[in-house]
Deep mutational scan, measured.
Amino acid sequence: HDVTIHAGDKTIHVHGASEEFLRIIEQAKRDGIHEEELLRLIEELVK
């Protein structure tokens, strides 16, 4: 999957995102996670 995530003034493109990655991001959004926290989460996941 190619994913584009908008968080605040940043746009992150993730190529080859796994289903698990997508679920984590969707869950985080539903939980109302702060955008900066979401960015950190994404950066950890894509290392």
Rank of each mutant, 00 (worst) to 15 (best):
L39T: 07
I25W: 02
I25R: 00
K10P: 03
E35A: 15
R30G: 08
L38R: 01
R23D: 13
H1R: 12
H15L: 07
E36A: 10
S18Q: 07
R23T: 14
R30Q: 13
L45W: 14
E20A: 03
T4F: 01
V3W: 00
R30W: 04
A28V: 07
S18Y: 07
S18W: 07
T11W: 02
L39Q: 09
T4K: 09
L22M: 12
E35C: 08
E20P: 00
L22G: 04
E44R: 11
G32N: 11
L41D: 01
K10V: 12
G8C: 04
T11K: 10
L45G: 03
H6A: 11
V3K: 07
L39N: 06
Q27N: 11
V3L: 12
R30T: 12
G8S: 06
L38T: 01
D31L: 10
V14I: 13
G16Q: 10
T11R: 08
H1L: 14
V46L: 15
D2M: 13
H15I: 12
E37P: 08
H13N: 11
D9N: 14
K10Y: 04
V14Q: 02
E35Q: 15
E36G: 09
R30E: 13
I25L: 14
R30I: 12
T4P: 05
T4Y: 01
G16K: 02
E43A: 14
H1T: 14
D9E: 13
K10F: 05
D31T: 11
E43G: 10
H1Q: 15
T11F: 03
R23A: 15
S18M: 03
E35G: 15
E26L: 04
K10N: 11
R23G: 12
I5H: 06
K29E: 10
D2Q: 10
L41R: 05
E43S: 11
L39W: 09
D9I: 06
I12S: 03
L22N: 05
L45T: 05
D9H: 09
K47V: 13
H15K: 12
R40I: 12
H13C: 04
G32F: 05
R40P: 02
R23C: 06
A28G: 05
H13G: 03
H6E: 12
G8Y: 01
L38M: 09
K47N: 13
H1D: 09
I33C: 05
D31Q: 12
K29A: 10
S18E: 07
R30M: 14
I12F: 04
T11Y: 02
T4S: 07
E26Y: 00
Q27Y: 00
L41T: 03
E37D: 15
I42W: 14
E26K: 05
H1C: 05
L45R: 03
D2R: 10
E43C: 09
A28M: 13
E36F: 05
I25E: 00
L41H: 02
A28F: 05
T4M: 01
T11G: 09
E43I: 13
E20N: 04
R23K: 14
V46N: 08
E36P: 03
R23I: 12
E37C: 06
I5G: 04
E20S: 05
T11A: 10
A17E: 03
F21S: 10
V46K: 07
L41S: 01
I33N: 04
S18G: 11
G16D: 11
L38C: 02
K47D: 08
R30N: 10
Q27T: 11
V14L: 12
L41G: 00
I42A: 05
I5L: 04
H13Q: 07
G16F: 06
E35H: 15
I5Y: 00
L22P: 02
L41E: 01
E19L: 08
E19Q: 04
F21E: 07
I24C: 05
E44K: 11
L41N: 01
G16Y: 02
E37I: 09
H13W: 00
L39V: 13
D9R: 03
L45F: 15
I33W: 14
F21C: 06
H34G: 14
E35M: 15
G8K: 03
T11L: 09
K29Y: 11
T11V: 13
G8F: 01
A28D: 00
T4W: 00
K47F: 04
H1S: 13
L39R: 10
D9F: 00
S18T: 14
S18I: 06
K10L: 11
G16M: 05
G16C: 02
L45P: 00
K10C: 04
G8M: 01
E35K: 13
E19S: 04
E36R: 04
A17N: 04
D31S: 12
F21Y: 03
V14G: 02
V3N: 06
H13D: 06
I33A: 14
H1E: 10
E36M: 09
L41W: 07
G32P: 02
Q27E: 12
E37Y: 03
F21D: 11
A7R: 02
L41I: 08
H34A: 15
E44P: 02
V3G: 04
E20I: 02
V3R: 03
Q27V: 08
E20H: 06
K47L: 12
V14P: 02
D31C: 06
V14A: 03
A17K: 02
L22A: 05
G8T: 06
R23L: 13
V46W: 04
E36K: 10
S18L: 09
H1A: 13
E44M: 13
G32H: 08
D2F: 12
G32E: 06
I12L: 08
L39A: 11
H34C: 07
G32L: 07
E37S: 06
I24K: 09
Q27H: 08
A17F: 12
I5E: 04
H13M: 06
D2Y: 08
E26H: 07
T11P: 06
I33K: 10
A28S: 09
S18V: 04
H6V: 15
G8R: 01
E35P: 15
T11E: 12
H13Y: 01
L38P: 00
I42D: 00
I33S: 06
G8A: 06
T4I: 14
V14T: 03
D2V: 15
I12N: 03
R23V: 11
G32D: 08
G32Q: 07
E43W: 03
D31N: 13
H34F: 12
V3C: 05
E26I: 08
D9Y: 00
L38K: 00
I42F: 15
K10S: 09
A28I: 08
E37R: 04
H15C: 08
E35V: 15
R23W: 06
D31R: 09
Q27C: 04
V3T: 08
H15A: 10
L38E: 00
G8Q: 05
E43K: 06
H6S: 14
E20F: 00
V46C: 09
V14R: 01
D31Y: 01
G32R: 05
I12A: 04
I42T: 01
E36I: 09
I25S: 00
K10D: 06
H34R: 12
Q27W: 00
H13P: 05
I12R: 01
H13V: 14
I33V: 14
I5N: 03
H13E: 09
S18D: 13
V46M: 15
Q27S: 09
V14K: 02
R23Y: 04
L41M: 12
E19G: 05
F21N: 07
I24N: 04
H13K: 09
I33P: 02
V14N: 02
I42G: 00
I42P: 00
S18K: 06
H34W: 10
L45S: 04
I24E: 07
D31H: 10
L41C: 02
E43T: 11
E37G: 11
A7C: 08
E36Y: 05
I25N: 00
E35Y: 15
E37L: 11
D9P: 09
I42R: 00
K10R: 11
E19D: 15
A7Y: 14
F21T: 13
H1Y: 15
I12E: 02
L22I: 14
L22Y: 04
E20Q: 05
S18H: 05
K10E: 08
K29G: 08
E26F: 01
E20M: 01
I12M: 06
K29F: 11
I25F: 06
E26N: 09
H34V: 15
R40S: 12
R40H: 12
E43R: 08
V3D: 06
I24G: 03
E20G: 06
A17P: 08
E36Q: 09
T4N: 08
A17I: 14
H34S: 15
H34Y: 10
R30Y: 04
E44W: 06
D2L: 12
L45H: 09
G16V: 07
A7W: 14
I42E: 00
I42S: 00
E19C: 03
R23S: 14
F21I: 15
E20D: 15
R30S: 14
L22T: 08
L45C: 04
E19N: 08
R40L: 14
I25C: 02
H1G: 11
R30F: 09
E35I: 15
L38A: 01
A7L: 15
D31V: 08
S18F: 05
E19R: 01
V46G: 09
E36L: 11
A7P: 05
E19T: 03
E19P: 11
I5W: 00
L39P: 02
G16R: 01
L39M: 12
D31G: 09
H6I: 14
D9L: 05
D9A: 11
T11C: 02
G8E: 05
I12W: 01
K29V: 14
L22E: 11
R23M: 12
R40E: 11
G32W: 03
K29M: 14
R23Q: 15
E43Y: 04
V3M: 10
L41F: 09
I5K: 02
I5M: 02
H34D: 13
H6W: 00
K47A: 12
K47G: 11
V14D: 03
V46Y: 05
L45Y: 14
H13L: 06
I24F: 10
R40Q: 12
K10H: 12
A28Q: 03
H15D: 05
L38S: 01
L38V: 05
G16W: 03
